[in-house]
Design a protein around this nucleic acid. Structure first.
Lengths: 125, 125
DNA sequence: CTGTATCCCGTAAGATACTG
DNA sequence: CAGTATCTTACGGGATACAG
């Protein structure tokens, strides 16, 4: 199998790639979105789930909301709670998330070591 | 169409996602790989192509090489030149790159504005 | 040409405490 | 609980010059 020249990569595609990276930059946005793909979360709950400080989470969520990637809903409870969930538009990102998840698993086998593929099947909702 | 709970997202998947992001972090690695998907490049050539300084490019390429994502070949020319190309393993990243390219184009329409989709079809190899 | 060595800066992001 | 205000630090990454 040849290892070169599979894809016609155009300048325009590179730009689109940059656009995407600009939207999901940093170490948190995709993790947040992937988590919200499972279910909606409240602020504090989300903070604990993924281990991110409130300050950073607030900033990330604001940026995601600006890009229509999360929906923020204030619940009239006491005290007030806020729910965050994905949007129809963010669902179009599932391809990206899926691809990165799959590749992460594959890469683990390929580079990190052929030996440790079996993950202990940790607790899953 | 419901907007929630499409995907079963497991902790293990989130970890895989983080692994991938760890490998392709920063603003350059995916751009480099996407560029190399088109054809092999020499160092300086690649530097100019994507507008990255030598210092940063060298660092990125080294990290990519460590992860078996690029192959470095020293050519016995005068002066010496070095070629960089993708590897079989980096080709498994095409799904990620493709997904991000597609989403970048889609996002452009959805958020940036319904009006400006037509890119002037700039010069393409 | 292929890198490396310095220098420099903005910013992502953590710790912590506080307000509504 | 939801978020903000400070403070601080680490690091990504650019500019430039230099070395092999």
């Amino acid at each position: 199998m040849s290892t070169t020249c599979i894809h016609p990569v155009k300048k325009q595609h590179i730009q689109a790639l940059r656009d995407t990276m600009d939207v999901v930059n940093g170490k948190w946005k995709l993790v947040i979105l992937a988590t919200l793909l499972g279910r909606k979360f409240r602020f504090r709950e989300l903070s604990r789930e993924i281990g991110i400080t409130p300050r950073v989470l607030a900033k990330e969520l604001q940026e995601l909301e600006m890009n229509r990637l999360v929906k923020r809903t204030v619940c009239d409870t006491r005290p007030i709670t806020v729910e965050y969930e994905i949007t129809p538009h963010s669902q179009t990102l599932t391809n990206v998330v899926d691809a990165m998840v799959e590749w992460g698993l594959l890469h683990h086998e390929t580079v990190v070591g052929k030996k440790r593929v079996s993950v202990p099947a940790e607790a899953e909702g």
